[in-house]
Amino acid sequence: NLYFQGLKYMVPGARVTRGLDWKWRDQDGSPQGEGTVTGELHNGWIDVTWDAGGSNSYRMGAEGKFDLKLAP
């Protein structure tokens, strides 16, 4: 699974964008943008601060869902 392989790169400072299971509307800005991981992966959740200004926790394994992917 590509998403599980990418988890080791989901570290503080990593750049991310919305992924396969995104369901959080425009939390990442409008139009959709990139963000920066600000915390360690914990119980399948990870913290992100978006360039647009907001921050929140997103699923990276929790509930079998992956809200994020590494930015290109």
Results as ranks from 00 to 15, higher is better:
Asn1Arg: 07
Asn1Ala: 13
Asn1Asp: 13
Leu2His: 15
Tyr3Ala: 14
Tyr3Val: 13
Tyr3Gly: 15
Phe4Ile: 12
Gln5Cys: 15
Gly6Tyr: 15
Gly6Trp: 15
Gly6Ser: 14
Leu7His: 09
Lys8His: 12
Lys8Ile: 14
Lys8Ser: 12
Met10Val: 09
Met10Ala: 05
Met10Lys: 06
Val11Phe: 09
Val11Tyr: 09
Pro12Gly: 08
Pro12His: 09
Pro12Leu: 13
Gly13His: 04
Ala14Asn: 05
Ala14Glu: 05
Val16Phe: 01
Val16Cys: 04
Val16Tyr: 02
Val16Pro: 02
Val16Gly: 01
Thr17Glu: 11
Thr17Trp: 06
Thr17Asp: 03
Arg18Asn: 02
Arg18Met: 08
Leu20Pro: 15
Leu20Gly: 09
Leu20Cys: 15
Trp22Ser: 04
Lys23Ile: 14
Arg25Val: 12
Asp26Glu: 11
Asp26Leu: 06
Gln27Asp: 09
Asp28Leu: 04
Asp28Gly: 07
Gly29Cys: 07
Gly29Asn: 05
Ser30Leu: 14
Pro31His: 09
Pro31Arg: 06
Pro31Trp: 07
Gln32Cys: 14
Gln32His: 13
Gln32Ala: 15
Gln32Asp: 11
Gly33Met: 08
Gly33Thr: 11
Gly33Ile: 04
Glu34Asn: 11
Glu34Gln: 12
Glu34Arg: 13
Glu34Tyr: 14
Glu34Ile: 14
Glu34Met: 14
Glu34Leu: 15
Gly35Thr: 01
Gly35Glu: 02
Gly35Ala: 01
Gly35Arg: 04
Thr36Glu: 06
Val37Gly: 00
Val37Lys: 00
Thr38Lys: 08
Thr38Met: 11
Gly39Arg: 10
Gly39Cys: 10
Gly39Ala: 09
Glu40Asp: 10
Leu41Ser: 07
Leu41Ile: 13
His42Arg: 14
Asn43Glu: 10
Asn43Trp: 09
Gly44Met: 03
Trp45Pro: 00
Trp45Ala: 01
Ile46Thr: 02
Asp47Cys: 15
Val48Phe: 01
Thr49Gly: 06
Thr49Ser: 10
Trp50Pro: 00
Trp50Ala: 00
Asp51Tyr: 02
Asp51Gln: 05
Asp51Glu: 05
Asp51Cys: 03
Asp51Leu: 05
Ala52Pro: 01
Ala52Val: 08
Ala52Cys: 13
Ala52Lys: 09
Gly53Arg: 00
Gly54Pro: 07
Gly54Ser: 09
Ser55Phe: 11
Ser55Ile: 10
Asn56Ser: 10
Asn56His: 14
Asn56Val: 05
Ser57Met: 11
Tyr58Met: 03
Tyr58Cys: 05
Tyr58Ser: 00
Tyr58Val: 04
Arg59Pro: 01
Arg59Leu: 03
Arg59Met: 01
Gly61Ala: 00
Gly61Arg: 02
Gly61Val: 02
Ala62Cys: 08
Ala62Leu: 05
Ala62Val: 06
Glu63Gly: 12
Glu63Tyr: 12
Glu63Arg: 07
Gly64Arg: 07
Gly64Tyr: 07
Lys65Leu: 03
Lys65Glu: 04
Phe66Asn: 01
Phe66Gly: 01
Asp67Val: 03
Asp67Pro: 01
Asp67Lys: 01
Lys69Asn: 10
Lys69Thr: 10
Lys69Asp: 10
Leu70His: 08
Leu70Ser: 07
Leu70Ala: 08
Leu70Ile: 10
Leu70Asp: 03
Ala71Arg: 08
Ala71Thr: 09
Pro72Asp: 14
Pro72Lys: 13
Pro72Tyr: 13
